[in-house]
């Protein structure tokens, strides 16, 4: 009952890692290439939705509960706000600015500076932008996946009960 035929399950098992890696690549390189947290998160969430379609929502619900995904989404949201508050915590010239990019052009994490119109990709740049990309990507992955999973599971249960 749960899930589709064996062909679909096998193809999904083969394709899932590639889609996942592509989505994570889009998230991590959001400050260099087209993409970012939202788009990569949508790609990874669609890979997870593929799992839900192929294996059935009841099987997926046994593997991961919606509470765990809610916690993951909250971690993403809190991380995003914490990176925004870093601009208030770490003061430069005795003034803090909300959403200030504190790590850009410093010597710390992701802190190398870029010259104007340089076309080489250097992943160790852009300050807090990659960190915010990861936080928002986590948030979008968990959010979209929990929407798909909860909707599929509830409609499956309703169909079983027959009302």
């Amino acid at each position: 009952m749960s899930g589709m035929s064996k062909i679909v399950k096998t193809i999904t098992s083969i394709a899932f890692p590639f889609v996942m890696i592509y989505g994570l690549y889009v998230i991590l390189h959001g400050h260099l290439t087209p993409g970012g947290g939202f788009q990569g998160g949508a790609v990874v969430a669609s890979a997870c939705a593929m799992i839900v379609v192929a294996f059935g929502s009841i099987w997926t619900m046994k593997k991961i509960k919606e509470n765990q995904l809610s916690i993951l989404e909250s971690i993403g949201a809190i991380g995003f706000i914490v990176f925004a508050f870093l601009g208030l915590i770490i003061l430069f010239d005795n003034s803090g600015i909300f959403f200030k990019n504190v790590f850009a052009n410093s010597v710390y994490l992701f802190g190398q500076s870029v010259e104007y119109a340089s076309t080489t990709a250097n992943i160790n740049t852009a300050g807090t932008l990659p960190l915010m990309n990861i936080a928002v990507g986590l948030k979008v992955i968990a959010g979209l996946f929990v929407i798909v999973l909860v909707m599929a599971y509830a409609s499956n249960k309703i169909k079983e009960r027959g009302d």
Partner: peptide, 30 residues
């Protein structure tokens, strides 16, 4: 590129120049 260090101008707008928009969007998604 000089101010945020990102090669992608759209990302620097989304997360740096207009971060408040993204904060509101995250709230809506939540």
């Amino acid at each position: 590129q000089n101010e945020t260090g990102a090669n992608n101008a759209v990302t620097s707008v989304v997360f740096d120049y207009r971060g408040f928009d993204t904060l509101g969007e995250a709230t809506v998604l939540f």
